[in-house]
């Protein structure tokens, strides 16, 4: 792959990652979450594949397949199952405020990424702030979402952002750690899926405003 094509491919993947996250925060509707999470997983898998092709690394290509299976297919399916029959809950802040907040968070992501220039100035390093921005968007979803499903999506976006930073900054953490992380995330999502079901059985909905019995 020529350097120019590589830079374009990395830029394209990062752009799709960012776009899918922006749409997730903007749309909020449960029905939109599934295709958007799939798209984000696909973008992340493509990113890993591009890095693998550039480095000629078989290991990275295998990881790309793993990311594709888990993040573009598996986890979104769990998500759609746990959100069946749910109405999208109104978030704590309206769409306009969310978009302004996201613009601010994107700026923050670029500012805090300044120390990463120590890694060089290639196309991968220039894309790292996108991963950081994803993590911040995930927090925005977690803080403003009143619905169990929105918090689940927020957690997944944070994880995708962290993975993107890992692959862009170092070509991925050691494989044994990567596998452990994937397994942990999968189990956390399954636990949240089971808990969502129990919350619905117990409270009749997954509106987290009902979870207010414990306080001081």
């Amino acid at each position: 792959m020529s350097d120019q094509l590589f830079a374009q491919a990395i830029g394209m993947c990062a752009a799709v990652l960012l776009l899918s996250a922006v749409l997730l925060v903007w749309r909020r509707a449960q029905a939109a979450a599934l295709p958007l999470m799939s798209l984000q997983g696909l973008a992340l898998a493509s990113l890993v594949a591009v890095l693998g092709i550039q480095a000629g690394s078989r290991e990275l290509l295998e990881l790309a397949a793993l990311v594709l299976v888990f993040k573009a297919v598996g986890l979104p399916l769990v998500l759609v199952r746990s959100s069946q029959g749910e109405q999208g809950g109104a978030p704590l802040i309206n769409t306009a405020t969310s978009l302004i907040a996201m613009a601010g968070l994107t700026a923050v992501a670029y500012v805090v990424s300044a120390p990463l220039s120590a890694l060089g100035s290639g196309p991968t390093v220039q894309a790292i702030p996108v991963g950081i921005a994803l993590v911040l968007y995930g927090f925005l979803l977690l803080v403003t979402g009143r619905h169990a499903i929105v918090q689940l999506v927020g957690f997944l976006v944070i994880d995708n952002g962290t993975s993107a930073v890992a692959f862009l900054s170092s070509g991925g953490v050691p494989v044994i750690v990567e596998l452990g992380v994937v397994l942990d995330v999968l189990l956390v999502i399954l636990i949240l899926y089971v808990l969502t079901g129990r919350i619905r059985d117990e409270f009749g909905a997954t509106d987290l405003d009902d979870l207010t019995e414990l306080h001081d």
Partner: peptide, 15 residues
């Protein structure tokens, strides 16, 4: 209450 505690624990702990 146990369900509420478990949800908060998993979300805050894992995030």
């Amino acid at each position: 209450t146990a369900l509420e505690a478990a949800w908060k624990y998993v979300i805050l702990g894992s995030v």
